[in-house]
Design a protein around this nucleic acid. Structure first.
Length: 447
RNA sequence: UCCUCGCUAGCUCAAUUGGCAGAGCGGGCGGCUGUUAACCGCUAGGUUCGAGGUUCAAGUCCUCGGCGAGGAGCCA
């Protein structure tokens, strides 16, 4: 009885007979020779059947095996440069095959291109394809790299509630759901406020989970349900926060380069762009960024582009502005010190410049734009209360949050990182909907 | 919410600008001992998103509706 091995480990078994369990990804028959490309979850490997090696009826079934049939195959592992697959370069001679299920003939996903609509309607099958498998495997490693880094740097993972009583950042983007006799609850759009409570017990914490925004955003950078990492740190200022961010992003990028080399290669990613991702990252003030963008706007001659690049101090960056800023470097770029008016109510004002707050966004290079947004939080009770009043927010709902500033308040800071945006950037893909197994967008909750 | 675009075979797309509904892939049958989304031959497969309208004639033009995509705003 041959040992059952996973495709990802196949290089350790050259010359030995092994068993793999998986699915037929593609089949090519060539007379007395059949190539099956088998995927088993850990990788893709070619199996080769020679007519002379098998009973005629077995060979005939192999030659007709429909795509996606589930199989258990036993045979010798060979090294062969011609063999396709991920990682590729190895193949299995087919000696024995057990067909667990011969798949129906009407499998809808061909290996050719599909339209977006069709692919998304068949997401439950699309995730079997090499490209999607490679992207999602990068996502998995991004998520474990996040935990590795934070857990080894003194952070505690304390997750925050998904059902929450009120808005943290305004009421227009919340999903509402009935909640027994309490009226309505809302799906969390951030865990930050609860993180701020947790740091006074644990010092350095993070929450990591799904988050929900009912924004009517219809772009390649938006989902209504996405995964966000939110670290929060006591006794931390804006500079300290940027150091954590660049350390984390460096660790993620270098981990993916090392552990997902085969996936990045399959995706055609230019890995030289990722090799540059090493701390420290360049830092630019909002003021300098604004000057640069205004200059760019004034020099632009194409009327259509000029309209898109329109900018003046006080505005938040649009996607075209972010793209221009990310062109300045081959590393992620910190932009700090945004106008308070375009940011959330809880951000600490800049000393001596109340119109600016101690906020920082991290923009990924190659035009990918914002992957992290964070700030130093307001630590003074009265200043925070005044800001809550100014924003017209219900004081009652923030009673507990205000209390955090009464009992041992300290400077503290935190940020949010979008998992799908980071994954899409590292993979070099166009749209973040491919960076989550089952994307939720404004037009889709199926499948 | 606004702007732009799309909807034709299971899938990806053509169809001379109003004149017989086509191809590749996928399926079926046959061939081939190194294929890389194989290739070659044969074959089946259509309510052209829906409803109206113009016309001798509509996939094509007009009106309304549906669905989706890209972008803006907003954000991670």
């Amino acid at each position: 009885m041959a040992e059952h091995v996973s495709v990802s480990q196949i290089s350790n078994y050259v010359g030995q007979e092994v068993t793999i369990k998986g699915w037929v990804y593609n089949r090519t028959d060539k007379g007395k020779l059949v190539f099956l490309l088998i995927r088993d979850g850990s990788g893709f490997i070619q199996c080769v059947a020679f007519k002379g090696d098998l009973e005629p009826e077995v060979f005939d079934r192999v030659m007709r095996l429909p795509q996606e049939s589930s199989v258990i195959i036993t045979g010798p592992v060979r090294e062969d440069k011609r063999a396709p697959g991920i990682p590729g370069g190895y193949e299995l001679g087919l000696k024995q095959i057990e067909i667990v299920q011969e798949a129906a003939l009407d499998y809808p996903m061909s290996l050719k291109d599909h339209g977006v609509d069709f692919a998304l309607d068949h997401r439950h099958l699309w995730i079997r394809m090499q490209s999607q498998w490679a992207i999602l495997k990068v996502r998995v490693r991004v998520m474990s790299a996040v935990r590795e880094y934070l857990d080894s740097h003194g952070f505690f993972n304390l997750d925050t509630p998904i059902l929450t009583p009120a808005a943290a950042e305004g009421t227009t983007t919340l999903f509402e759901t009935p909640y027994f006799d309490e009226g309505s609850a809302y799906l969390a759009q951030t865990g930050q406020l609860y993180n701020e409570a947790n740091i006074f017990s644990f010092g350095k914490v993070y929450c990591f989970g799904p988050t929900f925004r009912a924004e009517k955003s219809k772009t390649r950078r938006h989902l209504t349900e996405f995964w966000m990492l939110e670290p929060e740190i006591a006794f931390c200022d804006l500079d300290g926060l940027m150091e954590v961010e660049e350390g984390l992003i460096t660790h993620i990028a270098q981990t993916i380069l090392r552990d997902c080399a085969a996936e990045l290669k399959f995706l055609g990613r230019d890995v030289s762009k990722l090799e540059n991702i090493q701390a420290p990252f360049p830092r630019m003030s909002y003021d300098d960024a604004a000057k640069y963008l205004i200059d760019l706007y004034e020099k632009e001659t194409d009327p259509e582009r000029k309209e898109l690049l329109k900018f003046e101090w006080g505005m938040d960056f649009g996607a075209p502005h972010e793209v221009e800023l990310t062109k300045l470097n081959d590393k992620p770029l910190f932009v700090y010190g945004y106008p308070s008016a375009v940011k959330a109510f809880y951000m600490e004002p800049w000393p001596g410049r109340p119109e600016v707050c101690k906020s920082v966004d991290l923009l990924a290079p190659e035009g990918y734009g914002e992957i992290c947004g964070g700030s130093e939080r307001m630590s003074d009770h009265d200043a925070l209360l005044a800001r809550i009043h100014k924003e017209g927010l219900p004081e009652d709902a923030f009673k507990w949050y205000l209390e955090l500033r009464k009992y041992g308040s300290v400077p503290h800071a935190g940020f949010g990182m979008g998992v799908e945006r980071v994954t899409a950037w590292l993979c070099g893909i166009e749209h973040i909907r491919e960076a989550i197994p089952f994307p939720r967008t404004i037009k889709r909750v199926y499948p």
